[in-house]
Write a protein that binds this DNA or RNA. Structure first.
Lengths: 215, 215, 215, 215
DNA sequence: AATGAATGAGTATTCATTCAT
DNA sequence: CATGAATGAATACTCATTCAT
């Protein structure tokens, strides 16, 4: 076993090479999450990402156009998973409540155990002004709209109170999710913390949106 | 006498030469809010703040130790107003619900009409990693604790449901406030938007925290 | 006298300061000629020019927009002197022969004793492709046209043979001047070499352009 | 057998496998002329030469030691043809005038129709400082000496005026040829332009070098 | 206090070259 | 011979900060 870690790595490289390109790209993204989370976007040196990933500085530019685009790719690769989940899972849920609960569970559940990624999503993404304004803004909007639609639908069926603006509710829910994630990531980031939080937040939100009569 | 150096410094600035010096310091802070909001922290050049403020580059360093500290000062000068308000006003409110409502009204009300400041508080502050980790974290914690205490008190008196963690509730409320402010600042930032939002958010939060029996 | 070199430098800086800005700009240009001639344009490091000029790297950018523009400025400051001389002196000469002789004397005479500048003018200027195509080309054309006009005038008065294209003659004269300067600069660059060459070249050119009847 | 390695290498390239190998080397040189002329030496990427030649980047290094040496090889392959011609043809010419005329015809005639090569020879070669100082200088000197010898011989026989330095005359002739070629290459590069120029330049030079009595 | 010219540390990115396949 | 993914050295330029005036 003494040779296991080294030789397996070499073997993978030399013989098996299961996904040479993908492998390297993946290693760079993994390294980027870790270093970005530790240092922040601007304080992160591309050379440190390279060192962490075990590749040469120049190699990063074979896979990503720039440091900014590396952050974008990180976002796309890791976060858009969430949006795909939502598109898949939400239609299966019968009620607006179930859908909102699922949104909350998914967003917090997917980041549980990924403290670095959570920090990137809640804090680091806002450090690249260019990114924030050009790339992230439309994504945020789309996500907010998706939540607002669920709320509006629930109001239409009478399942949810209709004296609140769906868009305002969506912003509040999104903010709560973001705030909970950020404080978790910047704080102790205890195992299970986000999952526990998701249950409580769902409680809070669903009661808050329940029609008076239902109470 | 142990406080002499600190207090004298404050005194000199605040009391003795209130006009001339305060004027310039204030102009620099005003310029900083505007430029930070427009360009983001890192893309902002100290020289541009100087030009906007109508002073020489070097003058900024007579009032602030560094660019980072300028952002800190901005935060302190403009935001700690909120904490002082809270400390003054909260004790006057009789119920936990009233206090929570007041927190929401204050945070959103104070930023209403100050779009640039709102952007600085919700976005720019996260762009200085050093600031975020060293300065802002304890402030956030203190603010969260203040909210959590209100919730806990309300639970103790039976005014609020007690099946939710006060700290989680505080993080959710804070996040909702932050998210609403951010989307407002980055979006249309319509007049009255934050005040309207505050009423709706209070509705949502207070219903969400109400005990089942009250329903 | 022990303090002479240091103190005089300081004195010049602190007290006299005859032309602070001009002084520094001039020192940079002087350094640039020397380093460009020694290393060539691309192999020259901006930091080496700075060191040679005794200023900080960044200072160069207070006076010149870029390394390319530094070379342009060099060209403008040092070489356009020649064009001004031509414009001043040529009209004073009565015959085309005198004017051609003056052109040859001026171009070679102004570079005599300035080996580095001669190398910059004949070799280095062609190393910045951007410069060559955007800046130098029109200057060359203008210069060639000026020479061609002198030749054409001489042909019109019968002073010069008229079976040669003035433009071709101009290109040949310019090329001869350039080639002589270049080989001198790259070779021994002996004192008086260019002045001696100018007399001989004038002989060659004027005889070559003389009308057959004059023979 | 002492020459085996060298000759066999040459043999292999020239005789045995004339098509495949020679083909590739030739394609690379052709591509290099085109790209160097278009972009200049430094702005030319080895990868672009490879793409233009239709080979892989690494393949270039099977034929040329470096980018600099590629330019040297270009010079050798394309330009030394001229020197060989001169060595073959000059002895056949009876008079110094005929030899000078032939030199002019050859240099301009060989570049007629090869605008890119003309630009490489007159401009690009000066962009590699290393090349210019280490490789080209001795070639220039040899060429200049060859011309000077023709002039000196003509002076010795009384065919040419003897009041001009043969070396100066050679530099002037070389410069004129170079200048005419460069302005042609950088300008319209019209068909027949260089051949026409060669007749006129020969006229100018030969008249300029003719002894007074002959006039 | 105020100025702004000068400083010089700091880094993303390019691209000639290599070498495992 | 040929490939092209990987390498990593190398550098122009910016801008926060200083300090002589």
């Amino acid at each position: 076993m003494s040779e296991s870690s080294l030789s397996s790595r070499r073997a993978r490289r030399t013989a098996v090479r299961p996904a040479r390109t993908g492998d390297k790209r993946e290693r760079i993204l993994d390294a980027a999450v870790r270093v970005f989370a530790k240092k922040g976007f601007h304080a992160t040196r591309v050379s440190e990402i390279a060192k962490t990933a075990g590749v040469a500085d120049g190699t990063i530019y074979l896979y990503f156009r720039s440091k900014d685009e590396l952050l974008v790719s990180l976002f796309e690769d890791r976060v858009e998973r969430l949006l795909r989940f939502l598109h898949t899972e939400l239609p299966e849920r019968a009620t607006a409540s179930d859908r909102l609960r699922r949104i909350i569970e998914l967003q917090l559940g997917l980041l549980e155990g990924e403290r670095d990624l959570a920090e990137v999503v809640t804090v680091i993404i806002r450090q690249s002004t260019k990114l924030m304004k050009e790339y992230a803004a439309p994504k945020f909007t789309a996500y907010l709209d998706a939540i607002a639609r669920v709320v509006a639908d629930g109001q239409a069926t009478g399942e949810l109170r209709d004296d609140l603006s769906p868009h305002l509710a969506a912003r509040a829910i999104f903010g709560a999710l973001d705030g909970i994630t950020m404080t978790w990531a910047l704080g102790k980031a205890d195992r299970g913390g986000l999952v526990r939080a998701s249950g409580q937040l769902a409680e809070l939100v669903l009661r808050g949106l329940a029609p008076r009569s239902e109470a």
